[in-house]
Amino acid sequence: MIRVLVADDQDLVRAGIVATIDAQEGIAVVGEAADGAAALRAVAVCAPDVILMDIRMPRTDGLDATRRILATEPGARVIVLTTFDADDLVHAALDAGACGYLVKDAPIAELTTAIRAAARGDAVLSPAITSRVVERLLAHPPAGFVAAVPPAAESLTDRELEVVRLVADGLSNLEIARVVHLSEATVKTHVGRVLTKLALRDRVQVAVWAHRHGVARPPV
Rank of each mutant, 00 (worst) to 15 (best):
M1A: 08
V4W: 03
V4Y: 04
L5S: 12
V6Q: 14
Q10A: 14
Q10T: 03
Q10G: 05
D11W: 01
L12E: 07
L12M: 10
I17A: 11
V30E: 05
V30S: 08
G36K: 00
A39T: 03
V43S: 14
A44C: 09
C46R: 04
C46D: 13
C46V: 12
V50D: 06
I51C: 11
R56N: 15
R56W: 04
R56G: 13
D61Q: 02
L63E: 05
D64W: 00
T66R: 06
R67F: 03
R68I: 00
I69W: 01
P74T: 13
T83R: 00
D85V: 06
D85E: 13
A86C: 12
V90M: 08
A93W: 06
A96K: 04
G97E: 05
A98Q: 02
C99N: 02
Y101P: 07
D105H: 07
P107Y: 00
E110S: 07
T112R: 01
A114W: 02
I115K: 03
R116S: 10
R116G: 12
A119M: 10
R120D: 13
V124G: 00
L125S: 02
S126D: 14
P127S: 12
S131D: 06
P142L: 09
G144W: 00
F145M: 09
V146A: 07
A152W: 08
A152P: 07
R159H: 12
E160L: 05
V163G: 08
R165W: 14
L166K: 10
V167R: 01
N173E: 15
L174C: 11
L174K: 06
I176A: 03
I176S: 13
V179E: 08
V179Y: 05
V180H: 07
L182T: 13
S183T: 15
A185G: 11
K188D: 14
T189N: 12
H190C: 11
V191F: 11
R193S: 10
V194M: 08
L198P: 05
L200F: 01
R201T: 10
V204R: 07
V208Y: 00
V215W: 10
V215S: 03
R217V: 09
V220Y: 01
